[in-house]
Design a protein around this nucleic acid. Sequence first.
DNA 1: AATGAATGAGCATTCATTCAT
DNA 2: CATGAATGAATGCTCATTCAT
Lengths: 203, 203, 203, 203
Amino acid sequence: MPTKKKPQVTPSPERRRELLDTAAEVFAAQGYNATTVRRIADAAGMLAGSLYYHFDSKESMIDEILSTFLTELQEGYEAVLAAGLGPRETIEALVTESFREIDRHRAAVAIYQKESKHLATQPRFQYLVDSQREFEQAWLGTLERGVADRTFRADLDIRLTYRFVRDTVWVAASWYRPGGQHSPDEIARQYLSMVLDGIALDT
Amino acid sequence: MPTKKKPQVTPSPERRRELLDTAAEVFAAQGYNATTVRRIADAAGMLAGSLYYHFDSKESMIDEILSTFLTELQEGYEAVLAAGLGPRETIEALVTESFREIDRHRAAVAIYQKESKHLATQPRFQYLVDSQREFEQAWLGTLERGVADRTFRADLDIRLTYRFVRDTVWVAASWYRPGGQHSPDEIARQYLSMVLDGIALDT
Amino acid sequence: MPTKKKPQVTPSPERRRELLDTAAEVFAAQGYNATTVRRIADAAGMLAGSLYYHFDSKESMIDEILSTFLTELQEGYEAVLAAGLGPRETIEALVTESFREIDRHRAAVAIYQKESKHLATQPRFQYLVDSQREFEQAWLGTLERGVADRTFRADLDIRLTYRFVRDTVWVAASWYRPGGQHSPDEIARQYLSMVLDGIALDT
Amino acid sequence: MPTKKKPQVTPSPERRRELLDTAAEVFAAQGYNATTVRRIADAAGMLAGSLYYHFDSKESMIDEILSTFLTELQEGYEAVLAAGLGPRETIEALVTESFREIDRHRAAVAIYQKESKHLATQPRFQYLVDSQREFEQAWLGTLERGVADRTFRADLDIRLTYRFVRDTVWVAASWYRPGGQHSPDEIARQYLSMVLDGIALDT
DNA sequence: AATGAATGAGCATTCATTCAT
DNA sequence: CATGAATGAATGCTCATTCAT
């Protein structure tokens, strides 16, 4: 839980970030609809109306939270794809990057998981649909490449595999706590080991 | 499971079921908080107030939806565990049972995924916490047995593995559509193949 | 899937009328912007939220008040113009009709006077602009006919005359009280006498 | 005219005037209640809070706008009445003076027309009631003198006549634009011609 | 069983106003 | 003089819920 401080003078861009972090935390814990603006304001140590000095609306808060996160994620994925790795290494890098993103933006990821489907119907959040499509291409393309070069098994439904990998990664945001006993990289390593080689012992 | 004071005992249990199915569909599509009682009533072809002849409250609707589903799921899991199968076969049976449950109660599962964490804080929904614990024991116990008898790998964090497997299964409720191209058993088979043997091609 | 029938909310038109009359009175007395929805509800003997069972919004209230009034006025004017009277008799009939309208819809006319300019900028109230134009044509056309056939003086700016006649009639809604010492027809008679023949004694 | 407690005594009375003119323009265009302090500040090129260095409150702005205008109008009317003219010439002078006032203080007059009735209920704006009464006396007295000396017709209700003349003049502020095709004096001439001699052609 | 109408608490948002800098 | 940031009260509106019919 974020620091509660009394009415105080803080420089603007950081204050905005601070408030968004607070809001994200509450959105993630309570759900967007169930979160009242008063609750966010309470957590930020101000009155509900005061939030409107910084933001247009509750909606614009979640908008900024999600778009900031997605922009960063997109950059991360692009960097991975641009590295020219083989299919297995690309999957490894995408998974690792995703867990790092969860580590950095746990709240935003949780919000994304819970609310994006429902938000994506609104024109304002069209970018959710767009980035969804981009990510799908990144994962699916890599899997296909891997099937083609016999890195991955050919007998599995590739869309099913994609959903399996995607969801399991992101759903981790719902239980992950930064600073826990496993680092993001360690979680990624174990997850990859499981997904790539299975949990059954080779006999 | 709670009972209060109202007519609650509707002469026709089929009507009640019908209304709950309608409500579950809307809750799953829109989210519990974002769903208005009026919307459920619309979908059921009646006025908002009329729902209160059948149910105490909106909360009692989701309560009944979730508890009915969980009771059935519990029975299914217990039957599997009582069968005295080996660890690998138990995991296979649990996963298959879960996908069948998703097939039958898609809406309830989706609601459970999205809302249970947030509902579990209320005393009325204590049973969510309880069953969560039971399920965890079922999975964890089976995995531990499997590690002990060298069915499963010993080098993975077992709690992490449990979470991955659990999430992989349930998150499917968010995209699964009954009557689609894959039957629940077929999806289970592919999931198990991935989880047990991995997606990488053995070399 | 349950049967979907329209529950058809049949709002009692009399209650609706009653509430609109109440609202119109308050709007006229206080001004639209200065009137709170709570105040209308008070005057109607109910709570603010209850008004929304009958109306979509505060805006839809003033909308219905104004459009109802304008529809009736339009019909009145059309009947006058369809009667095929000479210019002087047409002006007399238009003025008389106007004062009768003020008698019947005092509040609506007062609201129209005070708020229409400002409301007309919104697309929803485009009809205010449209009817304004129609009325202008009715008055201006009649005046022009009268100038042409030497019923009216030719040395006056006809637009100025139009505004003079129009405004003076409608502004009467701000002081007119139904059931006062002058009937609408009597006021019309005196007003016409003044406008047509002037207040100066012929010498 | 009221004075309160604040800095209120701005070093530069010109800046104060400027700001009041800006405010008057916005009040006239948007209506007092619908005008936000922020909008005035925008138009003046400053932030909302900054206006409070110059003025106690939004109310004190409209107060100063109206009282300044009314003081000037009162002086104008008094000068006319002190000139010892006959009834017809007095009416002519009053009308002409009024249109000149509209030319100089269009915004203030428009505000006065739209808001004075509603403001007059507050003790702070008692002077609106007072001046209303004074103006009424000026017009009514002149009309009565004119009826007595057979300048004006005796068969018209004199209060009705007063209201018509008064409204005819002031309502012009709602459409008048300084620098338009008619000078204030020309408009006054035409208005007087209509009011005194009527628009009907003598036969 | 269902309707029509209302309640009342709560919500997001607006806005005049304050004040330290 | 003006700004940036906040306050606090009020506003239009929503919605779960009640209840007489």
